[in-house]
């Protein structure tokens, strides 16, 4: 996953500059989270291929609205597909049904192929909508919006801490790796490599815990009491209402179409 965190596209914990996310960026963060969840549940409920294709099309339409780089976002989505491809490729051979071809005595079935395509479409539609609607949020805004949606306060704190320190700890990890490299460490499949990686992880944990002690002291020094202070008062605008109505209509349409095509 390291490729996802290249310095060129540091999306986590980058304070200040708000990137332009078009129409999506103007929507209420709470609405974007709820919309992504609604869309996910509806998409998972769909069973017919045309309806699922329309759901994926809806996600792509949202992507166009968000002004995220088209190629890079789709490439990310495709990375997940590489992950699940193997499982999906097995399905035609394991679902009984009418044969397409027979390979080494195993026959692939149309029904299995349909199921594999179904899963692929669902997974891509949901993850793309999630990346577009929620992934474009400033990480801190994600925490505040989840808090406003009545998520447990401690969970939101944990989320915000994790977001805050991923970048810091990644830099520390890269520093340790650089230190290993200048001492001539080249990873391979051997005892020495595994021991070195184990020590590296152990060292990261030790440093993390010591860092957290300093953080706690600094927070106490500033009188932190465990409350989340809202920096922003969320209020739904007419634009939010319009988006919500449109999305609800789309979801209803998908469900209706699914019943009709089934």
């Amino acid at each position: 996953m390291a490729h996802a965190l290249t310095p060129a596209e540091k999306r986590l914990a980058e304070p200040g500059r708000l990137p332009d996310h078009g129409l999506i960026g103007l929507l209420d963060p709470r609405l974007r989270i709820v919309a992504a969840c609604l869309f996910a549940v509806v998409t998972v409920a769909l069973a017919s291929l045309p309806a699922l294709a329309l759901a994926l099309l809806t996600s792509v339409a949202l992507l166009r609205l968000s002004r995220l780089p088209l190629g890079r976002t789709l490439k990310r989505m495709a990375m997940m597909d590489g992950f699940i491809f193997f499982m999906l490729a097995l399905l035609p051979f394991t679902v009984p049904g009418d044969a397409i071809v027979t390979l080494w005595g195993l026959s692939a079935s149309w029904q299995g192929l349909a199921q594999a395509v179904e899963i692929g479409l669902t997974a891509n539609a949901v993850i793309l909508a999630l990346m577009v609607l929620v992934g474009t949020l400033e990480p801190v805004a994600l925490g505040h919006a989840l808090h406003a949606l009545r998520c447990p306060e401690r969970l939101v704190h944990l989320l915000m801490f994790t977001i805050r320190y991923i970048e810091v700890l990644r830099e520390e990890y890269l520093r340790l790796r650089a230190a290993m490299k200048v001492r001539g460490f080249r990873p391979g499949t051997n005892w020495h490599s595994y021991r070195s990686f184990g020590y590296l992880v152990g060292m990261m944990l030790v440093r993390a815990i010591e860092r957290s002690e300093r953080i706690l002291q600094a927070m106490k020094c500033r009188g932190f009491s465990g409350r989340i202070l809202l920096l922003q008062d969320y209020r739904l605008s007419p634009r939010d209402h319009a988006f919500a109505a449109l999305l609800a209509l789309t979801c209803a349409g998908l469900l209706w179409g699914d019943l009709a095509w089934r």
Binding site: A2, T162, R164, I166, L169, Y173, V201, E213
Partner: peptide, 23 residues
């Protein structure tokens, strides 16, 4: 409150550790 910073920083370290590729 006392343990949230530790849990948060450790959670971030495990996130980073999951980026390590071992041959």
């Amino acid at each position: 409150l006392e343990r949230i910073p530790a849990a948060g920083v450790l959670s971030a370290s495990f996130f980073v550790a999951s980026l390590i590729h071992v041959p």
